[in-house]
Structure formats: C-alpha cells, structure tokens
Design a protein around this nucleic acid. Structure first.
Lengths: 330, 330
DNA sequence: CTGAAAGCGCTTACAG
DNA sequence: CTGAAAGCGCTTACAG
C-alpha cells in the first residue's frame, strides 16, 4: 500500500540520462533525440512513474487545479453545477478542488485561503454574501470567476437571465388567455428572487399594462407556496394563474389548489422556475435553467483568464428555456 | 488581481527572524518565545501571508487533500455523498479533489494518476468496474477507501446494507397484511440490484415461506417500473404489493396503477428504496439511505488510515431506515 | 540535443 | 529558544 513512488531521478538513473532530459520529454519539448525519448519512455513505463504534482506546481507556479467554493447546497442544482464544471475542467486538463463555505464570510475567507498555492484560480458562488463582504473575502492574488453572486466590477459573474426567463413565461401565460396572474416570489433578500419579481412587474407593464400586478413574498419553499395560495383562496381573490419564482413553491401552490378542488389548468394555471426533476414528473410548466452550462461557462471563462485569453469581466447571463407542460396546457 | 503573494522569506524579513522561526509558529511547535511568536504573527498579518500549499506538501510529503473519484452521476445521490465527504474532510483539515470517471477503466486509471502527488489518499466509487479491473486501476502508492464498489480484500469498502433494508421493508409489508408481494429489481448486472433481489427472496423464505416469491427485472428507471406493472396487470397476475428496488421504479409503478384506477394502498401497496425527495412529496414508503453518512464514514476511515489509526479493511454496511408513508399505509 | 546547477517555498534535523 | 543549511521533486535558463 505505501510503496514509495518513483521520482524523476529514478527514471534518469534507469534511462542513463540526466533529469533534465526526463523533464523535457515529460513536457513534450522538442529538441529531444528520438532515441533519448524512447529510453525515457521505457524507463518511465518500467518504473510506473507519475510526476509529483506538488513539485511540479512549486517550480512552475501553476497547479492546473481550480478551486470551487460553494455554499452549503442540496440537490440537483449542486450536482448539475459540479457536473458542468468537471466536464469543462477535464477537457482543459484541470482538476477541481472543492470546498463548501458557510454563510459566515470569515469562514468563507478561510476556505479560500486554504486553497492558496493549490489552485490557479477560483470559482466562487456566494449568493448569501453582500457585495462588499465578497470583495473583501476574495484573495487578491487569485483570479476568480463568480457564479450567482452579487455583482463585483472586478470579476466575471455568471448569472441566470431572470429577466429573459420571466418574460418568456409571462408571454406564455398571456398567450394562453390568463389575465390575472399572481407572482409568488422568494425572499426579497435573495438576488434571484428580487430580479424575478421585478421582471414580473416589468413584463406585465410592457406586455399588458391594463392587467393587475400582484406579487406575494414567499421563501422558495413548497410550504410557503402552499400557504400563500391558501391565503389567496381564503381572501376570495380573483386569479387565473400562479407564476411561482421556483418550482418548489409552484408545487406547494398546486397542492393547495388540488386540495380544494380547483382544476389545473382549467381554472388556474400554475408555472414555476428551475425545472427540477419533480416538475417533469408532475407536469409542471416551468423555465429550464441550464445549470451544468453555467458550470461549464464558469470554468471556460476562468481558464481563458488563466491562460492569458482574457476578455473584460462582465455579468454574463444564461437564458432559461420555456418548458410548457400540463399545468399551463400550452 | 495578480498581486504576488508573500512568502515565508518576506515574513522572516519583516519580523527580523529566520524562516525557521516562521515555520515553527506556523506549525504550532512549542519552544518558541512568546515575543518571537508575536513578531511572527504581526508580520504575517501585515503581509496577509498564507503558506504555499505546494511547497509545504513537497517537503512534508503530505497534501492534506483527499482525491474523490466518482462515476458520472446525477442528482441527489451525488450531492449528498459530496456533502458528507466535505463535512468530514473539513472537520479534519482536509480538502477534496474531485474527479469524475467514465466507465472506461483506462480513463479511470488516468483520473487517479492525475491525483498523484496532490492527494494523500483516494475515495473511489466504481460500481461499474469489475473487481479485477478496479484492483488493477488503483495506484499502489496511495491508500484508498472504496464506496459502493466490488469487494476487494485489500481495501475498506462502504456499502449499503441492502439485506437489512430489504428485510425491514418485507417485514413491514407482511405486517400490514400483504401476501402477494412482487419485487421489481434493477438490472441484474448491478451490485445493489442483485443484492436487493436476493435479499427479497431470502426475506420471504425466512419470514413467510408459504408465500409466492416473484422478482421481475427492470433497470432502476421509472419507465421500467411502469412497464413491468402494466405487464403484471395485463397478465391478470394477482398481487397486493409492489416492492421496487428503488424509488424511481416505484414511482413508475404508482403511475401505472393509478392510470387504471387501482387504489393505493387499499388494493395494492407500493414501496421503494432510497428516499429521494420525490418520495416524500408523493407519499411513497421507502427505505432511507444515509448517503451523506456514507460519505462521512468514507472520509473518516481514510483519514484514520492516513494518520496511522489503521484498522483492518472490511466491508462496512450502513443500514437504511424504514420510512412508512401513505402508499403502504403503515 | 544534453547535462550541471539554481531555484520554486516550505520543513526539519542539527548546531549553538 | 533560534538560525544556517540541506532537502522535498520538479523545471528551466545557461553552457556546451
């Protein structure tokens, strides 16, 4: 188990050459005689040599690793994001160093500090940090790309195009004849929640200024969706569509409607946002967010920066796709 | 952005001491004068010094990082596993280096090779590899703990206690009066699928040898669950309970039953395995597998080994918990 | 095309 | 308690 690994010196000895030559073939340099190359390759094979990454990164000041700092997350969003990052990273010869960070910005700073010297750059998702805290926390010595984080002029930031997504869904609901759409939002402190709510107001103002605009604050949980709809029903408010800021709230809304026998979508249409696996199963109309795509873009952008193909940092938005299913009966 | 990071030599200069002293306070060695310690700490603060991990691991031959090699996975299982590993790792001062590996065992070998020199040990999940391939692929120079992998005498292997879990569910179904239980299994090539199917046979043989034993092979997908139940119904076979080898198949089964108006659980009970989020939402009885717990155990075990608290490698099984919900009407 | 040597930023006996 | 020096395993100008 603890068999000591061969070093470049062992390879040199076996091949009857200097370590410099070993290093040259290792790094694919030209100006190595074919015979030499062959001797080196043979020796490496014989010894099962694999270069020590720590030594390599110490002398090149490159680790070919990317630090990924994420909040404590559950479920599909997390795995899809990682999947996308892993794909893009392995295509480019990078490895992912993972660290989840808790709400505390001091701990977040530690998490990033622990990565110094082990990674060439950082991908950070910090939707829970204020812009100022985030800026203070990011190590100045490391290039970084943000994901779903507060805007920060110095760094590229990959976001969901909430405005575009909400516009598509509102247009879809209007096209299906709905005139009384209620938006159930996430907590107003949340970046995406606020953008979606504002986009809802703007979309109605643009597309159908004569219609009422109603926004109720929830918290992205199915319970809050259920509770808000129960309240709407209890107050006898008129509505013929619910557009929730995420799928979980939409599912809560569905539950509340079905419990009292309201027919969906005949009497009330229901739509969500995210396209969680549950949504497909329950026939919920929603906006599909390409989370893996965000992860891929983040890595691609960071590696571009690391390898000198820098473009100016900006807020880059990925637009979600409309998924029309039974609850809005496209 | 590319501000050069301070090195230990900078700290030594600012503190007016040798690098050895800096290193000593860095590593919490005793025999450092309080005044010296203070000077060092002040200098480190002034410079925002963070030790370079590559240099450190080169000279100590320890990286305090764990390589995690997983198959291409989707969804909750993946995120829960990582969550558990991350928790256990950060508690112990380790970082996680992630790499997903594709079915190909050659690529798997490369993925592990790329981690040499960057990690102190490996956690490998390779349910798709044959035992022999896995043994050949694992680098001999690195301690490793397996998760949900074929057994390999040399390494610790963390598995789900399928036998115990199936026994609990069969007992539950029998206790609720079901006498005609059909098991829908995963593909027979899959480790967990085979264990669950065999455990089902054994459980019935032990608890109610007079009852019929029926096992139908599916593939863990909801489609296969739906299809199998449609076939059962078409053939007019008698049954009063479906025990699927995972939740997705159970959901497919539910769908098929509801479509033709079979009442659940009055006429047919349905149970799954895994406790995916969907299960709770749809009131599906199932076995809850503590996936995060498996991740935590894997890291704990590996770190024990890395730090010399070795115990003999074994197959360690985590027992799932019975979650009785509406579809079996406990 | 190849080798000897310095250097990357740490840690750790070894002296003192 | 502290410092000078060697060494970890590589890479890379610099000579030749």
């Amino acid at each position: 188990m603890a068999k000591p690994a061969a070093t470049i010196r062992d390879v040199a000895r076996v091949a009857g050459l200097s370590v410099a030559s070993i290093s040259r073939v290792l790094n694919g340099h030209n100006h190595v005689h074919p015979d030499t190359r062959k001797k080196v390759l043979d020796a490496m094979n014989a010894l099962g040599y694999v270069p020590n990454a720590a030594a390599r990164s110490l002398s090149t000041a490159k680790s070919h690793a990317i630090g990924v700092v994420l909040p404590d997350m559950h479920g599909e969003f997390f795995s899809e994001l990682i999947r996308g990052m892993d794909k893009a990273a392995s295509e480019r010869g990078y490895l992912l160093l993972l660290s989840t960070m808790h709400a505390d910005s001091v701990l977040a700073g530690q998490a990033m500090g622990a990565m110094r010297g082990r990674v060439d750059g950082l991908i950070v998702m910090a939707p829970q940090l204020a812009a100022a805290d985030l800026a203070r926390t990011l190590p100045a010595s490391l290039p970084a790309v943000l994901v779903n984080s507060p805007d920060d002029a110095g760094h590229h930031n990959l976001r969901i195009d909430n405005r575009g997504g909400v516009m598509l869904m509102v247009r879809h609901l209007l096209a299906n004849g709905h005139r009384n759409i209620v938006h159930l939002s996430g907590l107003f402190g949340n970046l995406d929640a606020m953008e979606r709510a504002q986009a809802f107001r703007d979309a109605l103002a643009t597309l159908a200024p004569e219609l009422p605009v109603r926004v109720l604050e929830g918290d992205f949980s199915d319970e809050s969706g259920e509770r808000l709809v129960q309240k709407l029903l209890a107050e006898g408010m008129e509505f013929d569509a619910i557009f929730a800021a995420n799928d979980m709230m939409a599912l809560g809304a569905l539950q509340a409607l079905r419990t009292v026998g309201v027919r969906v979508p005949a009497q009330v249409a229901v739509a969500g946002f995210d396209d969680v696996p549950l949504a497909r199963y329950l026939g919920l109309s929603t906006m599909r967010v390409d989370i893996a795509g965000i992860g891929e873009r983040a890595v691609a952008r960071l590696v571009d920066e690391l390898e000198g193909r820098t473009t100016t940092p900006a807020v880059e938005r990925l637009t979600p796709a409309l998924i029309a299913r039974a609850t809005t009966a496209s």
